[in-house]
Amino acid sequence: MERIDARPRVRVPRSASPGEVVLIRTLANHPMENGERLDSDGERVARHIIHRFICTFNGDTVIEMEIEPSLAANPFIEFEAEVPESGTFHFAWHDDNGDVYEATADIEVA
């Protein structure tokens, strides 16, 4: 399966107060080929999706997702995290082809 230029993007506030709940938005470029589509020759295009997404904060899980072909192309995932202290969010999108697209975002908590 071809390599995808997923260019993952995340939106996380730069700062928060201790224990605050912050909104996190993520977007990755990916066709999420669902394995149902036919190409111009009438051949079925093989499934090729992001099947897993994980967000952690300072090593602790925020959310973990199992993803199926019915998620839309260019997966958009929005959720909330609680931040007890300053630190780093880590995001990982796992592709069927074995690639892992990663992003990080720092937040100052005071």
Partner: peptide
Amino acid sequence: CTVHFGPRAGSRTLST
């Protein structure tokens, strides 16, 4: 999809 909420989840909410 299935979302599992971890210890740092701020709410049990997901938009996609």
